[in-house]
C-alpha cells in the first residue's frame, strides 16, 4: 500500500485495502508438480481463505499431500521434486528468490501424519521453535510461550506436572497435540495438517477436531484428510483432488450436498476411492 493514512487514500486504494483484509491467505495458480518425470499435480489453482479451515480430500495418491507440502516448500527436501506455477502467500511468491524458506516455514507451520515429537522433553519440544527463531527474549517469555502454546493445543492440564519428561512418552493423541503446540509456538499464520488423525483413535480424533475448530480463530488451517466425515465436520471449504487434478473446490456444505462434478459425487458417495 502506498497511502499511509485514510486522508490520502483514494477510494480505489480503500477498496484494495478492504480486499486485502479479506484476501485469501494463499493464492495458487496453475501448480504443476513432477517427481522426476512423473507428474503428480496438474494445473492446480486453489485459494486458501484466511482464518478458515480448508480441507483437501481425495483418494490415495491423488496429490493432496503433495499440494499441501508445496505450501511450505517441504517438497524442497525431495531432490527429484520440481514445482511449477505460482504459489502466493499474502501476495508474495514463496518460490521466488526473495522468499527465505526458513522464514516461510516459520510462518507456515506443519503437523504431520504420524505424531513426530522430538525425542526430548515436552518443554523442549515446544520451546525449540521459539528458541531457534529468537522469538523469546528470556526464560520467562519462553516459559510463557510454552504455556500458552500447550494451552492452545489443549494439552496443558495433562502435562503441566511433567514438562521435563520425554515427549515420546505421551499417548498418540497427546503426541499429536504436542506437535500442534510445537507448531503454534512459532506463532505462524498458517498451519498445514497432513492427515493429523489417521494414526489416532476416535476419542483422540475428536479432541484434535475440536482443537482445529478453536485454532481457526487465529490461524488459517489447511488439512488433508481421508475421512470425509472429518472434512465435513471441521472445514468451511473443501477441495476434491483426483489423479493429480483439483476437480472441485467450494463451500464444504455445497461439496457434500450438491457437488457439481460427477467424480466428486462418486467419491463422496463411496463409489470409488
Amino acid at each position: 500500500m502506498t497511502g499511509m493514512t485514510a486522508e490520502v487514500m483514494t477510494p480505489k486504494e480503500v477498496e484494495t485495502a478492504k480486499e486485502a483484509a479479506i484476501a485469501p491467505k494463499f493464492v495458487t495458480k496453475g501448480v504443476d508438480v513432477y517427481y522426476a518425470e512423473k507428474q503428480a499435480l496438474t494445473n492446480v489453482s486453489l485459494d486458501i481463505e484466511t482464518n478458515q479451515v480448508t480441507s483437501l480430500i481425495g483418494p490415495s495418491g491423488c496429490g493432496k499431500s503433495t499440494y499441501l507440502r508445496c505450501l511450505n516448500r517441504m517438497n524442497d527436501t525431495i531432490d527429484i521434486c520440481r514445482v511449477m506455477g505460482d504459489i502466493l502467500l499474502d501476495g508474495a511468491d514463496i518460490y521466488s528468490r526473495e522468499m527465505d524458506v526458513v522464514h516461510l516455514r516459520a510462518r507456515v507451520g506443519m503437523v504431520f501424519q504420524k505424531p513426530n515429537p522430538f525425542p526430548k522433553s515436552i518443554y523442549e519440544n515446544v520451546c525449540y521453535g521459539p528458541k531457534i527463531h529468537g522469538i523469546a527474549k528470556n526464560k520467562a517469555e519462553l516459559d510463557d510461550i510454552v504455556h500458552t502454546s500447550l494451552q492452545k493445543a489443549g494439552l496443558w492440564n495433562e502435562v503441566k506436572d511433567r514438562m521435563h519428561e520425554p515427549g515420546t512418552g505421551l499417548s498418540g493423541g497427546q503426541q499429536q497435540r504436542l506437535c500442534i503446540a510445537r507448531a503454534v509456538a512459532v506463532q505462524p499464520d498458517v498451519i498445514l495438517m497432513d492427515e493429523p488423525c489417521s494414526a489416532l483413535d476416535p476419542i483422540a480424533t475428536a479432541k484434535i477436531e475440536e482443537l482445529i475448530d478453536e485454532l481457526r480463530v487465529n490461524y488459517t488451517i489447511v488439512i488433508v484428510t481421508h475421512s470425509m466425515q472429518q472434512a465435513a465436520r471441521v472445514s468451511q471449504r473443501t477441495g476434491f483432488f483426483h489423479l493429480g487434478e483439483l476437480v472441485e473446490v467450494g463451500e464444504t456444505e455445497q461439496i457434500f450436498t450438491n457437488p457439481k462434478d460427477e467424480r466428486t459425487q462418486g467419491y463422496i458417495t463411496g463409489r470409488f476411492g
Binding site: H103, P119, V186
Partner: peptide, 19 residues
C-alpha cells in the same frame, strides 16, 4: 520424520542436522 519435524518449525538445514 525427525528431520521433517525440525524443518517444519523452520529450523535451517544445519540446525536440523546438529540439533
Amino acid at each position: 520424520s525427525i528431520r521433517e519435524a525440525a524443518l517444519g518449525v523452520g529450523a535451517s538445514k544445519v540446525q536440523t542436522v546438529f540439533h
